[in-house]
Design a protein around this nucleic acid. Structure first.
Lengths: 342, 342
DNA sequence: TTGAAAGCGCTAACAG
DNA sequence: CTGTTAGCGCTTTCAA
């Protein structure tokens, strides 16, 4: 074992203060009343010795880790970054550390994460990543570690799930476009590798059929391969421009895809919103700062992160006063990327 | 203490395998040779019992935590998100967890972070946040916890520091603009609350003076209050438009500020790059996806994160084979936000 | 090669 | 109110 600086322990404090070890512990944890005099002596001793409790020891005794694991596909995606902020804030308020697990969409990191969980390196997990693999969910379940799903639909009734109402979001976007007079509407999507994306796409198709709006194959473009979201949007946008006829508006599966498409249009001399209107999904910070600023369906990411952790904290206390599925109402944020038709 | 599922411990494995506790440990850690037969029995027992070592106990014994602390001002800032990815990847490769500490620029979280460190909840720290407060550096120093600075200039010679060569970056940007024929150049900056930003601003002024280029007060706009970077850029951009005469080009202190300024210009009918050229700093992912795409000075954020952790891992092993200050060479990335003059 | 035993620093009965 | 004591699950001498 490596040489280390001498560590001040509770034992030292007890000796210095002339009291028993347990008295110090009781004082520190408030688990038993301590007389004012001993209290003073303990405080003085702690001060003098610069004592700091050792969390590892405390955690071993209490059979916990004081940490929560956050599992996201990509921390550089602003959606997850905002989510992480919400998670981080509430966790800290509750005295927990958050261990970041960002996969960069690499499959084998899922296994690493399960190791982390099974080795009890976290007390609970916030999962914002849909395991395609059913086996991993089972493994997580088997670990006995409490978990919450954020932006992931329920997979069992053990874990609460917090997701935005994706269908509603798409419907709001489409209703808005229709109200503006649009009838020829396209849909650009990243690979629908999670249920949220599947639902958005399905909601789009359903709405269009229900309203009897034309639905062309060349207007519904769904990327197959997993890669940078903006690049996907750019490629799909360029692709759309090859259509025999352009739709007058498009809905994108996410803001990043919308930004990519926007760039594709502008760089091809297509004006937004004059020639084509765009609605995004998520409302990342940058949506309001591109030109034209992006009209989009807002997901309250920060709040979703907060809510997720709040549920998790309840789970950790053995309570369970929340629904299995919490559907968050999305909000349409009107900006400058859409224009009326006729 | 709360009721918990029964935990399989090494003791159980030992009993199941019919060997001593320490033999199992030796096998698991390779600290002593184990005969093939006992090896088999142990493996079988582990398998049968679904045993997973408990890290808390191991850590207590080894006097470590197996975690690294990452301290950044704002995880939703793409610069730090990319950095975090680099940090996260290397840490995990080395078997460490990374604890995310994102402050959202709140001052009191610095104290929280110091608590984390002093309570030995991390084995080392990656600091990407300049404490204004000298006291906090001293406190970190006093904790004895190894640290590295990333995007923060050295504060002592205990901790290695990895920063981009900010002066060179600004000079590259300006040389580029000058080569394009620009002589009237402005500078928009977020609050220079860290040395990197001070250096950029200073480098700008020095370069301009050295080249004998005109330097107007109304072209050098530096925000005073800490807030959203893009909003700052937007405000400053609008502000610049009030100048008696517009510069033909501007350099921004960061891409986010540049994006805000770009938006301000475009929304005021000023064309980029026709009317004014813009150079950013950082090269965040989105720089290439706005329209026009942003010419910028690239900081290799991911690599800086990696390098920082690599140094930290060395520190943790007691080695120290690196310079106190590692200056990373910035790269000018030409895109579409600049145009030649005359 | 294997095992017994002494803790790592702290909490929590339990007794006084 | 204060002290004694038995571990939490694991690593690591030290002996056998």
């Amino acid at each position: 074992m490596k040489e280390r600086l001498y560590r001040v322990t509770m034992k030292d404090v007890a000796r210095e203060a002339g009291v028993a070890l347990s008295t110090v512990s009781h004082f520190l944890n408030g688990t038993a009343p301590v007389s004012p005099k001993t209290r003073q002596r303990i405080i003085a001793a702690i001060e003098r010795l610069h004592y700091r409790p050792d969390f590892t020891a405390r955690n071993l005794k209490k059979r916990r880790t004081n940490a929560l694991g956050l599992f996201v596909p990509d921390i550089t995606n602003p959606f997850y970054a905002e989510l992480a902020r919400g998670v981080s804030d509430v966790s800290r308020e509750a005295g927990y550390s958050v261990i970041l697990y960002a996969t960069s969409y690499e499959r084998d990191l899922e296994e690493d994460f399960m190791e982390l969980v099974e080795q009890h390196q976290v007390d609970g997990a916030i999962i914002s990543y849909s395991f395609i693999n059913e086996r991993l969910w089972k493994r997580l379940e088997g670990s006995g570690v409490p978990a919450v799903l954020v932006d992931v639909y329920p997979v069992n009734d053990l874990w609460p799930s917090v997701v935005v109402d994706n269908e509603r979001g798409i419907e709001k976007a489409l209703s808005y476009l229709v109200a503006l007079g649009h009838t020829e509407i396209g849909y650009l999507s990243e690979p629908p590798y999670v249920l949220s994306l599947v639902k958005r796409q399905r909601a789009f198709l359903n709405f269009m059929r229900r309203k009897g709006l034309s639905l062309r194959d060349e207007w519904v473009l769904v990327e197959k391969t997993q890669r940078n979201r903006v690049e996907i949007g750019f490629t799909l946008g360029k692709e759309l421009l090859k259509a025999s006829k352009l739709p007058t508006a498009i809905v994108a599966s996410s803001d990043l895809v919308a930004l990519g498409a926007l760039k594709a249009f502008l760089s091809s001399g297509i004006h937004v919103p004059e020639d084509i209107s765009i609605v995004g999904f998520d409302d990342i910070l940058l949506a309001s700062y591109v030109h034209p600023s992006l009209t989009t369906v807002r997901q309250p990411k920060y709040e979703m992160g907060r809510t997720g952790v709040e549920y998790l904290l309840q789970l950790l206390q053995g309570k369970k006063e929340y629904p299995t599925l919490t559907l968050i109402e999305p909000v349409l944020v009107e900006r400058d990327s859409c224009r009326g038709r006729g």
